[in-house]
Deep mutational scan, measured.
Amino acid sequence: MAAAAAAGAGPEMVRGQVFDVGPRYTNLSYIGEGAYGMVCSAYDNVNKVRVAIKKISPFEHQTYCQRTLREIKILLRFRHENIIGINDIIRAPTIEQMKDVYIVQDLMETDLYKLLKTQHLSNDHICYFLYQILRGLKYIHSANVLHRDLKPSNLLLNTTCDLKICDFGLARVADPDHDHTGFLTEYVATRWYRAPEIMLNSKGYTKSIDIWSVGCILAEMLSNRPIFPGKHYLDQLNHILGILGSPSQEDLNCIINLKARNYLLSLPHKNKVPWNRLFPNADSKALDLLDKMLTFNPHKRIEVEQALAHPYLEQYYDPSDEPIAEAPFKFDMELDDLPKEKLKELIFEETARFQPGYRS
């Protein structure tokens, strides 16, 4: 834990890192770190609560700039109880001085990944967590956004079992017609939660990839272990087919990539493993919904509104309290091709509203 900075004593240090967030945020305490930044909790002297502050230093890398800009653009436009918001952003007053960006968010005690390492969940908890994931996802999908990296560590939890989806750095506007060349190379989302079509096709992607990830998360809540822990690309596919069985001819016809289709045709026939054999203690309604989410063919996979209306979630289902976005989200430009200098300018502009004396 960093010592509390005395008023006016300059930035606090946390594990050798400068955290320049005073005077409003003090009493910093280390939480963890990701690929390009550290997260601390801090005391907000204005709202009198502890908050989470993520320090991001992305400006050396085009990919990190892209992810940072995506996350900020999306989260500043989203407003939903099951999606983490941005409360404040701290950065230098000029673009030349801006080396880091500090993002202030609600402090959540833990995440689903940490929880599943230590606790076996009751059916009631599984049901409530799944409902909140789908409630947040309904809003995301209504904005025409794909999260693309749903996994237990991106689901934040607090002691009252509130759940918030975080990390929109890989999110995209849904565009089933656009052929994202190089899709697989830039697709760094965790393999275990990846839909089979991501490994088999490169053309376009749809909201059904997020539903697949939610199915993987439900299976993990039922058993405290990942359902498809593939060691590499082909191993991942083999794990999936080992449980779902061989795809039907109709399902194979959806695979545009001939090499991928021929690979699947070359494999020995596998039978589907019954879900109640894998999860003998699970609620039968939970397994019915799991089956509809972990469907090989993305066109037959359940959609988020149908999933919310499934009998497993009937005690929570309330369409009048499951809000959607006001308007579909649009990125003005494809960020993939922009140089990091341009992305830095866009991050600077996007964060201006939090600067003292800002006038829109």
Rank of each mutant, 00 (worst) to 15 (best):
P274C: 08
L155V: 03
I255K: 05
Q66S: 11
H269A: 03
L278R: 04
Y113F: 14
H310W: 08
N82F: 04
S248R: 04
M199C: 04
T159F: 05
N253P: 06
T118V: 03
M13C: 08
L244R: 00
S202E: 09
K164P: 01
K231V: 02
Y263E: 07
Q315C: 01
D288L: 06
K330M: 15
A352P: 00
E12C: 11
I89Q: 00
H232I: 02
K151H: 03
L289P: 00
N27W: 00
P229N: 01
T160G: 08
S208Y: 15
R77P: 07
D167Y: 14
P23L: 07
K73D: 12
C65I: 14
F279G: 01
T118Y: 04
I84V: 00
I72W: 03
S223H: 03
N123K: 15
K138V: 07
L343P: 01
K48G: 13
E109G: 01
I140R: 09
Y102I: 11
Q249K: 15
K117R: 06
A9N: 05
M333R: 01
Q236H: 13
R261W: 11
I211P: 05
E350A: 04
N154W: 03
H269R: 02
V49N: 10
K300A: 11
L265S: 05
G22I: 07
F129W: 03
T68E: 14
H141W: 11
K342S: 01
N87T: 11
I217R: 02
K48N: 15
C166M: 01
F59Q: 13
E305V: 14
L234N: 04
E109Q: 02
S266W: 03
V188S: 09
K54F: 01
Y233G: 02
L155H: 03
L150A: 01
R70Y: 00
A352W: 07
A327S: 12
P280I: 05
K138S: 07
L137P: 10
M108G: 05
N82W: 07
R79C: 13
S202M: 08
L156G: 15
Y30K: 08
L287D: 00
I209C: 09
G16N: 02
M221N: 02
E197A: 05
D179W: 11
G8F: 01
K231R: 00
R261Y: 07
I89D: 02
N154R: 08
G32R: 08
A309V: 07
A143R: 02
R77Y: 01
A309L: 02
K117V: 08
Y139L: 07
K99D: 03
L75S: 10
G182V: 15
L200C: 06
A309F: 05
L200H: 06
I53T: 00
N224A: 05
V273L: 12
L346R: 00
Q132W: 02
T26I: 15
L218H: 05
Y30C: 08
K117L: 09
N82P: 02
K73L: 12
I53D: 01
E71N: 00
K203Y: 09
F279H: 03
D179C: 10
I240M: 07
I347N: 13
T351I: 09
Y128K: 09
D149G: 01
K285M: 05
S284V: 06
I217A: 05
T190Q: 01
T190C: 05
L170F: 04
L157T: 04
S202C: 13
S248Y: 14
D175L: 11
E314W: 00
Y131I: 03
N276A: 13
R301D: 03
P58Y: 15
D167T: 03
L264H: 01
L170T: 04
Y25P: 03
R67P: 09
F168N: 02
W275M: 12
P268G: 03
Y205L: 03
I86R: 00
D321F: 05
E12V: 13
P311R: 01
Q62I: 11
P280A: 06
Y233W: 06
V304D: 14
Q236V: 09
A327E: 07
F296N: 03
L28D: 00
D210S: 09
Q66D: 10
N262G: 03
Y316K: 02
L252W: 04
G136W: 14
L346Q: 14
E305K: 12
F331H: 11
K203P: 06
N201H: 08
R67M: 13
L170D: 06
E322R: 02
A189M: 02
L290M: 11
K151Q: 14
I133T: 00
L234S: 10
L252Y: 05
